[in-house]
């Protein structure tokens, strides 16, 4: 579904991603772990071109989206993203947050979009918050709404950029539960996270990144119990 070839990203003189090759297949839940500064967020943000790769190619569903002539907006509709800081639109109600993109981008009529949002809100257990503004919600609620907002575009893949890192510990569970449910329904997901429990339980594949490269990858049970690379061993010994 997503094929990354020779992806390199520089910030000035600093090379953050060093010629990464990776494929993500439909229905996979790929969890990316690694120390901070290893390039995992940048890697994720390159997938929907929020960061423009310095060189290399991203192919999404058969289209080379790094090609300058491609209208990236059309492809981003199919790639939802959930951010560490939620990034809900504070001047809109929860309902408006979820319906704006379907209405404005896809041209779906308001009634239809609202029906879909109510269904999504019910699913994440926040039906009573439709008319609330984001600043009245807890972090966990905000992140669940952000997930619903991304889902409202019916994306083919969801990208999660440390979705639980800005949450109070007691709210991490409710967000992970929603993500687990999505995974069990076969949603293709790429998740950058520090939640090793989530990786172990839900991932179909875990990538360990360090210093701008994917150092090692394997199924979670293999990677966590038998890490091959010394840097993976070192990292896991510190976080587990």
């Amino acid at each position: 579904m997503i094929k990354v070839s020779n992806l390199t990203k520089n910030f000035g003189k600093l090379t953050v991603l060093k010629s990464i090759n990776e494929s993500i297949k439909k229905g996979e839940v790929v969890v990316v772990i690694g120390p901070s500064g290893s390039g995992k967020s940048t890697f994720l943000r390159c997938l929907n071109l929020l960061e423009e790769p310095t060189s290399g190619e991203i192919n999404f569903e058969g289209t080379s989206i790094t090609d300058k002539s491609v209208n990236i907006n059309l492809h981003r509709e199919k790639m939802g993203m959930v951010f560490q800081q939620f990034n809900l639109f504070p001047h809109m109600t929860v309902l408006e947050n979820i319906t704006i993109a379907p209405i404005k981008v896809k041209g779906i009529c308001k009634e239809e979009a609202e029906k879909t949002s109510h269904r999504l809100l019910k699913r994440i257990g926040l039906s009573d918050k439709a008319q609330s503004y984001p600043n009245k919600l807890s972090g966990g609620q905000k992140q669940r709404i952000a997930i619903a907002r991304a889902l409202a575009m019916s994306p083919d893949v969801l990208l999660f950029d440390e979705p639980t890192s800005a949450l109070d510990p007691e709210m991490v569970g409710e967000v992970l539960d929603v993500m687990k449910e999505l995974a069990s329904e076969g949603m293709t997901m790429v998740v950058v996270t520090h939640e090793m429990g989530f990786a172990r339980e839900v991932a179909s594949r875990v990538l360990f990144m360090d210093d701008g490269q994917i150092v090692e990858q394997n199924t979670p049970s293999q990677l966590f119990s038998h890490p091959q690379h010394p840097r993976t061993q070192d990292f896991l010994s510190k976080v587990l």
Binding site: E77, G80, N87
Partner: peptide, 15 residues
């Protein structure tokens, strides 16, 4: 305005 707002909009396919 926080740059995350622009990123959120763009990630939803908005121009």
């Amino acid at each position: 305005i926080d740059k995350g707002q622009m990123e959120a909009g763009r990630s939803l396919g908005m121009s």
